[in-house]
Amino acid sequence: MNSIELRDLVYRNLMRIAPECDPSELLPGENIREALDIDSFGFLQVLIGIGEETGIEIPETDYAEVFTMAGMLDYLARRQG
């Protein structure tokens, strides 16, 4: 998947949990959960969705790397490569 496809996939999964939000307004360095008001349950659902589409399961020990949009995309690109 190229970076645009990855980004759209993450947006799609965020919107499933926070339907009234527009993830494209997220700044690259902004904390996703805080900005979109997603609780730990919702965030796990987002990660499950991403895992199902990409086959990449993000372990809890890597959560610190995926708190921002930039971190998330970077992480997914690295793991898929």
Binding site: G51, I58, E60, T61
Partner: peptide, 17 residues
């Protein structure tokens, strides 16, 4: 919990709540 979750698929992960 972290040790438990490492052994589990993401769908079966347990949250501190």
């Amino acid at each position: 919990l972290e040790g438990e979750n490492l052994k589990r698929p993401i769908r079966e992960r347990i949250l501190p709540a």
